[in-house]
Write a protein that binds this DNA or RNA. Sequence first.
DNA 1: GAAAGTATTTGACACGATGTCAAGAACATG
DNA 2: CATGTTCTTGACATCGTGTCAAATACTTTC
Lengths: 199, 199
Amino acid sequence: MRPREFDHDEVLRVAFEQFWCKGVRGTSLSDIAREAGVQRGSLYNAFGSKEALFLAAYERYAGEYLGAIQKVLGSGSLRKRLTAFFDLTIKNFRSGSPPRGCPTTRGLMELGSAEGEGLDENARQAFADLVSRITDLVQGALSEGAARGEFDGAPEIAALHIVTVTRGLAVLERAFDDEAQLRKIAAHTINLVLGKEGR
Amino acid sequence: MRPREFDHDEVLRVAFEQFWCKGVRGTSLSDIAREAGVQRGSLYNAFGSKEALFLAAYERYAGEYLGAIQKVLGSGSLRKRLTAFFDLTIKNFRSGSPPRGCPTTRGLMELGSAEGEGLDENARQAFADLVSRITDLVQGALSEGAARGEFDGAPEIAALHIVTVTRGLAVLERAFDDEAQLRKIAAHTINLVLGKEGR
DNA sequence: GAAAGTATTTGACACGATGTCAAGAACATG
DNA sequence: CATGTTCTTGACATCGTGTCAAATACTTTC
């Protein structure tokens, strides 16, 4: 067979960069093709559709991101872990200039309620998956913290609450473009969950 | 001059209904024109652009929504007020079938980072405005509650935290389509802010 | 009451996006 | 070297936004 003339991974990287900056609907396959130095038709041949291309690019990102989260949630005191977790989260959607926002949150909100609109069920699944996995990791950290007496409460609902706050931060980031505000909210949340400072 | 052949407000109502269900990018002016029984060109004549039409429709919604929020946050014990606030918030984006989600959160996340992409600065302003006003109302309720001894802490950051959670709930709603989960998180948040039950 | 003026309507057009398709090109294998 | 399979390339159909000019309907003025 004829060999592919472009680097599969490189295209995914370039594509996700564009999706991240401009949103899925705001990025055309022509944009990606131009940026990646590939013919538009080749993208259709290799990935099938814009949606499938996005999904492939997103999975790549999600894997990397989840790894980073896992790392920061895996060592240190519970307070340090949660602080690092919020730090990483905020840093993630404040990266780039202008800041690119949170791709997962954005993707979730771009979903169409009606069938056939926007991203479909596969995409929702992928986004929900990442959120679920992150929640599990946070819950794990809380459970370990509870065993060491650093946390007192139900890890399950507390983890859900924390992840909800991170999603809310992604939204406020778009609204106010104020990183200090995000950090203040994050710190406050940690204090609410663990109790005030000297603990 | 020649009189307009359609009801300005009715068109805004119909338009926002569609924007709400399918997202701004997912709704075409042809859709709206068909549904409203108006020519597409007339919409451009009356509103100027899709974006301007959306904005006009959104302002209408925002006004009504803010009024409802103000009402539930204005009477009863602080715990009752916050419970009613979360109730209203969740009910709002669980309305419709399938549920339509939160238009403000969706709009914020659809914003393009780069200029010229997606909704522009005016839209961001409108979304951010609603979020700010809601935060002010929540803060007011907390301040009154503090004066009555129902709340102990800094109303400003607490209000910000609560609103952040509501935005996060809007995101989780899209991810998991699980209303019970949303209510659990809301109840947990209230408990974190006010202290456990019997208070 | 007729003419002029003005805003709305209507349909045609330009442009760009997605997705399909057929024909051409490049490599593997017999 | 022939054959077959995949990738590439350009043309096309369809739909979306936004612009424009001509037709239309009403108000105002003479």
